[in-house]
Amino acid sequence: MFRSKPWRLCKGMRAPFSTRAWYQMPLKQRSLGKPVGGHSSGKSILAPGKPLSREELLNLLEKSLVHKDDVLLAISKPPGLPVDGKPGEVTLLSLLPFLSQKLGLPQNLQVIKAAGKESSGLVLLSGCADTVRRVHDFYIRSQRAKRPTATYCAITTRIPEASEGEISTGLKLMQIEDFDLVVPVASPSRGSIERREVKKTLTHYKVLDSNEDCALLQLQPLTAFPSQLLVHSTLILSPILGDHMYSSRVGAVLGEPFLLSPESALPRTQILNDSLLTKLHLQQRHVHRLPLHLHLHRLLLPSTEGFSSCAALTAPFPAFFLRTLSLLGLALPQEETKEQEKTLKAFSTTQ
């Protein structure tokens, strides 16, 4: 949780507050259908079978507050909820006015930083223009200094060859058949970068734990590009669990992974090997309901004293994420374990 002194640039929000996020609660059995797998015992890591209504989403978001003070609000959003979208679509921005009314918050909240649509995790908001500018300036300064400000955790379906390293490549948006996809460009020309057709991207990664054919990764992007972490994970031959967009780019022959071209590997439901399916108590026909296991866990913020020091804001891991870790025999770093064990215990004992 963000523990620095409360910011006083603007007023109108109440004192710091936190509560258990919606995904720390057990998933409703009525939404999941019948258990799959011979050893599931009614427990599931699958997403609800039907889209949640606006009112259900509002109730869940109301319970997902991570931090609240005079000028900053942070929630931990569920996977599958986009921040913005087309008119008429249910998005976080379309829900914000109703959420603000329910919680007595300012109506002019702006999104400063947010997990992507399919990811879970932190969304940072503020109704104070000075605070928004201050935090944006901090992120710009940090990016220029090549200091990561966002830390994601991901569960991958393979173990990277190196336990720690950097993923650096050019990325561009490209239409392939009916899909708008992000495509890596290994050696982009200066002209393509100057024309902004390609952007150089960089991600630090570290294996926090591994077991057989899966791993828990820490991912710290130093650049921002759509689907950057998903595509970068395929480049180290370790697709993120629940990635139904880019995981098809990693193939295997006799158990050895290799990278397929984007043109020959269009999006599809992720294919899991028999070992992973068994551990997760799933059948392949249910994998399309597997949520993306990519969580924006931690954000740095400038402290009240200035840019020379930072404060950290964290969001608890979703219950489905913790349950998957348990099923795969993966462990969080020691400093995270005690807090997350409470979440997993509550999730498991009520199933």
Rank of each mutant, 00 (worst) to 15 (best):
F2A: 09
K5Y: 03
C10L: 06
M13F: 01
L27I: 12
K28V: 04
K34A: 10
K50S: 10
L61N: 09
E62A: 14
P78W: 04
P79E: 08
K86H: 06
T91C: 05
L95E: 07
P97V: 08
A115I: 02
A115Y: 01
G116V: 00
T131V: 15
V135W: 05
H136Y: 05
I140H: 11
Q143Y: 02
I155Q: 09
T157I: 04
T157D: 06
T169D: 05
T169Y: 01
L171R: 12
D178C: 00
V183P: 15
S189N: 07
R190D: 01
R195D: 13
E197F: 08
L202C: 15
K206S: 11
L217D: 08
Q218K: 15
P221A: 02
S227L: 00
L230T: 01
S233G: 09
H244G: 10
S248T: 13
V253Y: 11
S264C: 09
L266N: 12
T269A: 09
I271Y: 12
L272F: 13
T278N: 12
H286E: 14
H286Y: 15
H293T: 06
H295R: 08
H295P: 07
L299M: 05
L300C: 04
S309D: 02
A319R: 14
F321E: 08
R323D: 09
G329K: 13
L332G: 11
P333A: 05
P333K: 00
K338L: 02
L344P: 13
T349H: 11
